[in-house]
Structure formats: C-alpha cells, structure tokens
Amino acid sequence: MNRRMLRKIKNSAFLSLSLVATLTGLACLAAILWTLISHGVSGLSGRIFTQMTPPPGGQGGLLNAIYGSGVMTLLGILIGSPIGVLAGTYLAEYGRSSRLSTAIRFINDVLLSAPSIIIGLFIYEIVVVRMGHFSAVAGALALAVLAIPVTLRTTEDMLNLVPIGMKDSSAALGAYPWRTTLSVLYPAARSGIVTGLLLAIARISGETAPLLFTALNNQFWSTNLNAPMANLPVVIFLFALSPYKDWQDLAWAGALIITVTILLLSISARVLLALLRAERGS
C-alpha cells in the first residue's frame, strides 16, 4: 500500500513538473510577444515607413533599413533557392542512395544548423576582402548561403512525397526524366516547394550576424548594390544598444515589424503544408 502511494506520488510529481515546463515555455513566448507589442506599437507611426534612419538624437524612420532588408532577402532567395531546389532534385531523382548523395544530405543538415556568424566570416573572406569594401551584394550572398540548406531539404522531402505512379506514367509516355521533373513532379510538389521558400525567407530575413560584416549598415538611402546598405537587423542591433531614447524606440518598432513578418511567414508555411497533407491524405 505504502509503495503504491509512493509510486503514485512520484508519478504525479513528474507529470506536474512536465506541465510546469510546458507552461514556462509558453510563458516565454507570451512574454517576448508582449514586450515587443507594448514597446513596439508606440513607436510605430507613418514616419517609420517614410523617413530614413536618423542621426543620434534626431527623429526619423526605418525606410532605408526596410528597403535594404527587402532587397537583400529577395536577392538572397533569388540566388540561393534555385541552387537549393536543383540540389534537392538531384538527391530525390538522380542520386537517391549513392554514397555522394548520403554525404551531401549529411553536410546539408550540418549547414542547416551551423552558426550563421561563420557564414558571415566566410563571405567576408571571399567577397568583402576581394572587393575591398562592404556591400549589399556580399550581404545577399551570405543570406543565399543560409537559404540553400532550407530549400534543399524541403524540396527533396516534397519530391519524395509525389506518388511514384505519376513518375512512372510520365516515363511510360516516353518522357525523359528532365521532362518528368519539370512537367509532372514540380507542379505536383509546388505548394511544398513554396513552403520551403517561405521558411527560407523567414530564416534569412531575421539574420543579423552574417550581415554585420558583409552589408554593414548605411545611415542614408542607398540603392547601390555595390555599397554598404542599411538593413533592419543591424539597425536594431546598433540602435537598441545606443543610449538615445529615439533610437531605442526605433529599434523596438523594427523588432516588432521583423517578428510579425517572420511569424506570419512561418504560419503561412505551416498552413500551406497542412493543406498539402490534407490533399494527399484524401
């Protein structure tokens, strides 16, 4: 009897601890979102989207930073995702279980969780040092390197989900694999691949470390890809650590914008994936 009580108590103790752990995790997410909203909303105004980042003590907005982030993220995706999609296609369709593919899969998963500051140093060494100055191109390349593993992984997974019968039908009609891939597999896996792109955009648009010494920052409006370019994460970093109240407010507003964007992207990626699963299931 006593032993049974002890087991029961132990059971409820550990189960309550797991509940506490879950509540703590959820509380952290809530606390972060609450802080962002309460600090960020007050700083949000029309100025944010119409004016440039101000000098110390001055008033201004984040227009150049938002523009820079958009341009570099877009360029990063445009450069990185075709490589990721093609490499994923190779793994799913041509290489399948060769030793090379196993190695590439392994390296890709390692790159997926590699520290992004290392990628920043890498691009600094091979681009910034060669060109002799910081530039938006270097920033975009660093982001592209980060986008490749994400798109590769999802592309391979999604191509593997396409029913084998579709591939066989296409082959039976005499189509070469390239035709099958472009006309049958890609359309069938389209929403899955788009999910991968959304996840990649979400991943790279909040990255700070790889931009610190590639794109650097720029206080002014600049569309020159060959020059340093402002971007939200680095502006948030610099402004949040500054002693000026105006700058800190701008940092909070920027943080809110970036987080909302990324959460929306991740949620839409998830919804898309759920729809895809439902479609496949039926």
Binding site: T208, A240, A255
Partner: peptide
Amino acid sequence: LLAAVPSIIFGIW
C-alpha cells in the same frame, strides 16, 4: 514559433 523568432529579438528582450 518560438524557434522561428530571430535571435536578435531574444537579445533585445
């Protein structure tokens, strides 16, 4: 979603 929040946000928080 907590995993998707960028690290700079954790820093400033």
